[in-house]
């Protein structure tokens, strides 16, 4: 299992926390840092953040579970957020989501057998002018047709092998 945060990151956060009046404001920064490093936020990540901020794990958990882009369960190397909101819906978003499910052979919320992709329906990504769209990790793609999706998936599979 990958590290939660590097020793250097922990030192930096500690220094920052000592420096500010309301350390709790860093809770999302910390959770996001753990997720960036580890891929998702396991229980140990919640405990680490709680320890750094002087909070109980429960206090961190009620924040972590509120936000959709904090993953409290394992996700594939490339979490795919497929937009299901109105602008993408109006331009073929549903068909695109179906195509993704077929190509990856998974239902929404699941991870592909090779562990690379998790398919997560999401609300509007803020790229309504480029619908239908998806976001992989934090990279947005759009407008997309089935061939575009296939190409992106192939590229990422290749990247994962390299």
């Amino acid at each position: 299992m990958a590290e939660l945060l590097t020793a250097e990151q922990i030192d930096q956060f500690r220094a920052h926390i000592a420096h500010i009046e309301h350390p709790r404001e860093l809770i999302i920064d910390l959770l996001r840092a753990v997720q960036d490093k580890h891929g998702w936020v396991p229980d140990e990540g919640v405990e680490l953040v709680a320890g750094l901020l002087g909070l109980t794990p429960l206090e961190v958990e009620e924040i972590a579970t509120f936000y959709y882009k904090i993953y409290r369960r394992p996700v594939g190397r490339y979490p795919i957020h497929i937009c299901d909101s109105i602008c993408c819906w109006s331009r073929g978003g549903e068909a695109l989501a179906e195509h993704l499910q077929k190509s990856l052979d998974i239902a929404p919320g699941e991870t592909s057998a090779d562990g690379l992709f998790t398919l997560l329906p999401t609300c509007c990504l803020g790229v309504c002018g480029r619908a239908p769209a998806m976001m992989i990790g934090r990279e947005s793609y759009g407008p997309l047709n089935n061939e575009d999706v296939d190409r992106v998936l192939a590229e990422l599979r290749q990247e994962a092998q390299a």
Binding site: R24, E25, I28, R32, I63, F66, Y67, K69, I70, C123
Partner: peptide, 23 residues
Amino acid sequence: HGSAGRYILGEETALLNGLEGVR
């Protein structure tokens, strides 16, 4: 401040709670 994805954070008082690090 970078958020982590919930529409309700756009409501200004929810946003302030979000900045403070409370639910």
